[in-house]
Design a protein around this nucleic acid. Structure first.
Length: 496
RNA sequence: GCCGCGUUCGUCUAGGGGUUUAGGACGCCGCCCUUUCACGGCGGUAACACGGGUUCAAAUCCCGUACGCGGUACCA
């Protein structure tokens, strides 16, 4: 089994592309096959220099190492279509020689004119096909001499596929079953552009055969092109690979997921954006795998190894799927919990240091351990700045609700108790507070909430005593006293 | 317009003639746990697009309609 991911380097890899790559990768790994990366750079006008590196980086980040491709080589190198020109040229020559393709001299303006002439309400998109080719300037309508003369003169020209009339083209799609098209509906696809480069259709068919691709898994946007490809396989004398056309990823609003719609909705589109937003690659992979596929069991969280084990093309859905970032976030939280404190620390360090400056590794590790189950992103650790420095302000709503007349005094007393607490463990810190509640004759809650506010500035967080221990005794005592001072009730007259 | 592909809770989906009072997950709501917020546990909300047919029986098969998506480029 040999499969390929064949993106065009026209921009950053988007998540739809990553999902296509993933399904190819899973299938290859599951069957001990080969996963190939092929760069389809035949459109020079849309070429983006950094795109290829972004594709490679994104695949690597996601944990999908390819077996053959740019920078890696392989038995069918090179893997850039721009370097495989001769292959397409000889394929086009064979097609021409066999009468399966023809040369057309029509300029883009000629074709525009054709469209303009024929466009009606009933036919808004006229085609260059068997109904119109006879009225155009091509080797079907020109004499042999005239064609040769123009060729010798260097007239710009393209090569078009000579699509037969009235043939039913059938093929089996692994996801959709039997699909049939009438060849009359197919246009005379340009195979070689006037700059000499092949179009996707020719290059793709030639390369899939040359690289011995056995399974083509790609987006549904290609389904309508399959008849052209089947014709090319037949005319070139090649056996077509197995086909599987994936449902498209739709925007959360239901429409198509375009750059524009993504911007409007404020959702990331490119893999790089997800990466920068702090998503874990394992989470994105798991999420993407389930966007249009499911294992048929109730297991939701899968490692790459488990996905490889469970994946089958047949269990892929057939209808478009909407992106649900809520679920992605949930997956991310799932993977964060499975990470070691060390991994969380290393993934959050930059964000934390941006927020509070240089932090001690041991401290960060302790914070990661304590907060693991309450965060969605590793970077969320940066929100709890109180682990690393005292609060600048105290949460107002919390103060209103929890800070009473006697709070400053109780917090001060608790500071004294902690200061003389030699061991300062979670247990001793808690015991001290319970003793204080008893000797002062107040409820436990009357102390713990003000203490939390005094030490962290907020009302939410991990267990109080675990938090105190992570922050450290001296610092806790200092913050408690500072809060007791700042928030002490003052006589009305002395105020202001 | 034409061609192709689709259509089960808001979303991702299971289910492919009787096993279904249509199952799971995310989200949302409630309860429990609890010093708070989470986590976790328990419970709840919520779907077979519509119309015909086939059949003893249809979410499941067939036809039609509606709607959505894709294609209809010298882009991929």
């Amino acid at each position: 089994m040999r499969v390929r991911f064949a993106p065009s380097p026209t921009g950053q890899l988007h998540i739809g592309g990553l999902r296509t790559a993933l399904y190819n990768f899973l299938l290859a790994r599951k069957h001990g096959g080969t996963f190939i990366l092929r760069i389809e750079d035949t459109d020079r006008s849309r070429f983006v220099p950094d795109a290829e590196q972004d594709i490679i980086d994104s695949l690597r980040w996601a944990g999908m190492e390819f077996d053959e491709g740019p920078g890696k080589g392989g038995v069918h190198a090179p893997y850039h279509q721009s370097e495989r020109f001769d292959l397409y040229k000889s394929a086009a020559e064979k097609l021409l020689a066999d009468g399966r393709a023809y040369i057309a001299f029509d300029t883009p303006e000629d074709i525009d004119a054709l469209r303009e002439r024929l466009t009606t309400k009933e036919n808004p998109a006229p085609k260059y096909d068997l109904s119109t080719r006879g009225s155009m300037t091509n080797s079907l309508t020109l004499s042999e001499d005239e064609v040769q003369r123009r060729l010798d003169a260097g007239d710009p020209h393209v090569v078009r596929l000579l699509v037969p009339e009235g043939e039913t083209i059938r093929f089996h799609d692994l996801i959709r079953g039997e699909v049939a098209f009438d060849s009359t509906e197919v246009d005379d696809q340009i195979l070689v552009k006037s700059d000499g480069m092949p179009t996707y259709h020719l290059a793709n068919v030639v390369d899939d055969h040359a690289m011995e691709i056995t399974h083509v898994i790609r987006g549904e946007e290609w389904l309508s092109s399959v008849p052209k490809h089947m014709l090319l396989y037949e005319y070139l004398g090649h056996k077509p690979p197995q086909m599987a056309h994936l449902p498209l990823i739709l925007s959360p609003a239901g429409g198509k997921l375009s750059k524009r719609s993504a911007d409007t909705l404020g959702i990331p589109l490119n893999v790089k954006q997800y990466r920068e937003a702090g998503y874990e690659p394992e989470a994105l992979v798991n999420f993407l795998a389930f966007l249009g596929w499911n294992p048929g069991t109730e297991q939701e969280v899968f490692s790459m190894e488990e996905l490889i084990e469970a994946y089958t093309v047949q269990r892929t859905g057939q209808s478009g799927v909407q992106l649900d970032l809520n679920k992605l976030d949930w997956y991310n939280a799932q993977f964060i919990r499975r990470l070691s404190a060390k991994d969380i620390a290393s993934r959050s360090r930059d964000a934390v240091e941006v927020a509070v400056g240089p932090v001690d590794e041991g401290k960060l590790l302790a914070v990661a351990d304590l907060m693991r189950e309450r965060i969605t992103f590793a970077n969320d650790l940066a929100d709890s700045t109180y682990f690393f420095r005292g609060p600048d302000t105290y949460d107002e709503t919390g103060l209103k609700k929890r800070w009473k007349e006697d709070s400053a005094e109780l917090v001060g007393l608790y500071a004294d108790l902690l200061e003389s607490n030699a061991s300062f463990t979670e247990a001793s810190a808690e015991a001290a507070m319970r003793d204080l509640a008893e000797t002062q004759g107040v409820g436990f809650a009357q102390i713990i909430h003000p203490v939390r506010l005094a030490v962290t500035g907020v009302t939410i967080g991990a267990g109080m005593f675990e938090t105190l221990v992570v922050i450290g005794k001296e610092e806790c005592v200092r913050r408690l006293r500072e809060a007791a001072e700042a928030l002490a009730p003052r006589p009305q007259s002395a105020a202001d």
